[in-house]
Amino acid sequence: MNRHNHDLSTDLNLIIVSHGLASRVFLMKWFKGTIEQFEYLHNISNCEF
Rank of each mutant, 00 (worst) to 15 (best):
E36V: 02
T34W: 08
N13A: 14
L14S: 03
F38L: 15
G33K: 09
T10G: 02
S18Y: 02
S18H: 00
H6K: 13
K32T: 06
I15R: 06
A22D: 04
I35W: 10
N46I: 00
F26N: 05
Y40N: 04
M1A: 12
S18D: 06
L8G: 04
N46F: 01
V25D: 02
L41S: 00
L41E: 02
N43T: 04
F26L: 15
E48P: 03
E36H: 08
N46G: 04
F38D: 06
L12M: 13
L8A: 11
C47V: 15
A22K: 02
L41G: 03
Q37F: 00
N5G: 03
I44G: 01
F38S: 09
E48M: 12
C47P: 01
F26A: 10
E36M: 05
F49Q: 07
R24N: 03
R24I: 03
F26R: 09
H19E: 00
G20D: 01
R3W: 09
H42L: 06
F49D: 05
F31M: 11
S45F: 03
Q37E: 12
L8I: 09
H6E: 13
I15K: 07
V17L: 03
H6M: 11
M1P: 07
M1T: 09
M1K: 13
L21S: 06
F26P: 05
N13Q: 10
T34E: 09
L21I: 11
E48H: 14
S9I: 08
W30F: 14
F49Y: 08
F31G: 05
T34N: 12
E48W: 04
V17K: 02
T10Q: 06
R24S: 00
F31H: 12
S45Y: 04
H6I: 12
N5F: 04
H6C: 10
I44T: 03
H42V: 12
N2A: 15
K29H: 11
H4C: 06
D11T: 14
S45C: 08
K32R: 15
R3I: 13
K29Y: 07
D7Q: 12
N46V: 01
I35K: 10
I44W: 00
A22R: 00
V25P: 03
E39L: 14
G20P: 00
H42Q: 07
F31A: 07
T10F: 03
H19K: 01
F38K: 06
K32F: 08
E39A: 08
S9E: 14
N43Q: 02
D11I: 15
H19I: 01
L8W: 04
R3E: 10
L12W: 02
F38V: 09
S9T: 14
N46A: 05
T10S: 05
K29D: 08
L41Q: 05
I35H: 11
N43R: 00
D11C: 13
F26S: 07
A22P: 01
I16R: 06
F49A: 03
L27Q: 13
E48T: 15
L27T: 14
D7S: 15
S45A: 15
I35S: 12
I16N: 06
T10N: 04
T34C: 09
L21D: 03
T10K: 08
H19T: 05
M28T: 14
R3D: 13
E36C: 06
V25C: 04
W30Q: 07
I35V: 13
G33L: 09
I16T: 10
D7P: 02
I35P: 10
C47D: 13
E39F: 12
C47K: 14
N46Q: 07
G33Q: 05
L21T: 09
R24E: 02
